[in-house]
Design a protein around this nucleic acid. Structure first.
Lengths: 204, 204, 204, 204
DNA sequence: GATGAATGAGGTTTCATTCAT
DNA sequence: CATGAATGAAACCTCATTCAT
């Protein structure tokens, strides 16, 4: 037989999560079986996945944690470097679209797991409430910008939900094989958002 | 025994599609097995589903067609009654949000099937290209509005994708059990869109 | 392929329970897998067992119910035909040993399931309390016999437990391939019991 | 980290056998997997069990040997100290019940292994023939007692089998959590046996 | 049209055991 | 001696689909 390859538990877990992301992105959540994940990772059997993850849901939660962590690491420092609330939101949009273009598989897999992974009782593991912290923070930045006179008055809940959704749309759009310029898409979306929120001037 | 109900083929197909929508909405795409659909429909055997639909994909395509048709019937006449391009888009937004609030299960099922149903080769049955006709038409209305001086200059592709996505976000938002006023949400989203596209005045 | 054989649900369930009994008796509880039961029954797949029984525990409970029912049908009428409490107990012993000799597989399977089948939490499905009703009744017959002067004084609990156990021992003994005369074994055991309980005379 | 304990091979084997006994007694033969045994023993890997025992059957045989040895050490000297055959049997009964009450886990594990452990060909590793030496010896004591006039005439085979079985019943009975007085149970069982075998007087 | 038993593939998970370190 | 990652078989169960009635 082929020689046994021995990895540290951490390295093997990473490899399995990566394979899971690729299978989900290429073949869909429903096709992400242990057999297909193992084959893509070159594992000798699905038993190895069960050895490293308590069950399938645990693997899927790891997929979410991994992608979320990667995105956070890319976007958060860029936001922290901004001076004004409106600049923070501008950077959030631009950096997000950049990340989506750079990691399309991760984003596809993330939303597939979020939309499909369920608890034994049938409820979504990551229901709509998973978005709340992000929405709350977006609304806070918007209110800060309004108070600072950078933005006009509008319903921050509707705006935050719409911005979050528009970014999801951007992820799909810049993942298309023929798409050429994600940076331009990000700039244009940020401009649209600035206009919608009544900003006086572009951030630098 | 309760008398076996013998329905016309068309009525039976409708009943099965309705049950499929409910199962998908309540328990998710992955749980939408023939067994569960048949149980919810009160059928005595999954064989009846196979009798009326060539295979599972055919049933799922019917789910999409049904929901899409219902939404079209609700929204299209309202758009057709408008005089100006910007008014058409305003009505599109408002009527869409109304429909989502009135038929949350249909919308959840629709997006679940769109995101998960695949062809035997693994490609999505309803890939991103399924949105193209709608996006093309939205862009056309936007360009008409720009030409008519109702809207300022902007990238209609980005705007159309973002509007479509914002409506998807609205569907999730107004489906939440504690959500109270979808009409207000639709108005506010339309206002936001008007501001983003530089409209001078609200449609009547 | 081989022609599909179609049985009524009831007949198929009986056939599967019978095969389960044989597998358990010949190869042990641990070897009583769906695959082996299906093979012995000539089924095309283990799926058929799952179709007819909710899960493995349900099949095993049916095994117990079946054997218990058979034994009850054999022994109970014989006991009911007796006039005195001591005669009832005598007949109980003799008829039981007869049944064990006639249906050795059933008895082996019964005690294998009783000793091994567990609930999900690890507790025995048929714990020691399953014997209580029988023990209580045996004690009642003994007390009646004591009151009628047919038996001397003794601890009815110890006697009932020991009698029940001695019958289990008899089941093993008369199941041995070289065993010749179960009727004699039953008579001798009844005689031993009569002596232990101080009976004055043999029942007719 | 806690310091890895490095035990002598013999001590380690004892520890593993002890854990196996506890797992079998608490969770049943079917649940006695290497994983569960290792966890209860605090071992970091099931590999250690494979290292110390040729295979699972070898471990189980050790379980039997251990418990059997313990029981033998407790009961045999008490029997050897008796003067008459009937006194030997009396002491056998009393000492056995005492041991069962003192070591209920061992007894449960012993009978679980005896009833379930099988050779590769499916035959019981410890079949009914395992009882033969004991039965033969019990019969010998009974015949000696008969010859000495201490007991009346009866079928020693039936009596030996029944006594052995009654002791098994006693083991279950005195293991029940609410059982209070095993000594009394032993005395009463011995009395019952004495009556069954026509003994004139109690041993001292 | 409808029923429900049968099929066979494929799902996750657990198991005893091996072996490089 | 001990560790723990890897292996491959086999377990139970669910699935979409077929087909005799």
């Amino acid at each position: 037989m082929s020689p046994r390859s021995r990895l540290s538990a951490e390295a093997r877990r990473r490899q399995i999560v990566d394979s899971a992301i690729e299978v989900i992105a290429h073949e869909g959540f429903g096709a992400a079986t242990f057999a297909r994940i193992a084959r893509r990772a070159g594992l000798s059997s699905t038993g190895l996945i069960s050895y490293h993850f308590a069950d399938k849901a645990a693997l899927m939660r790891e997929v979410v944690a991994r992608v979320f962590g990667k995105a956070f690491d890319h976007i958060r420092p860029r936001m922290d470097a901004q001076a004004s609330p409106s600049a923070v939101l501008h950077e959030f949009i631009v950096a997000s679209v950049e990340f989506y273009a750079a990691h399309p598989h991760d984003i596809v897999a993330l939303s597939a797991v979020r939309g499909n992974l369920r608890q034994p009782d049938g409820r979504l593991e990551f229901g709509p409430e998973i978005h709340e912290p992000e929405l709350v923070q977006l609304q806070q930045f918007m209110r800060d910008a309004q108070r600072a006179g950078e933005m006009t008055r509008f319903d921050t809940r509707v705006a935050a939900v719409s911005l979050r959704a528009a970014l999801d749309g951007a992820a799909r759009e810049v993942s298309r094989p023929d798409h050429t310029d994600p940076a331009r898409y990000g700039q244009e979306l940020a401009r649209l958002f600035a206009a919608a929120t009544g900003q006086k001037a572009e951030p630098p």
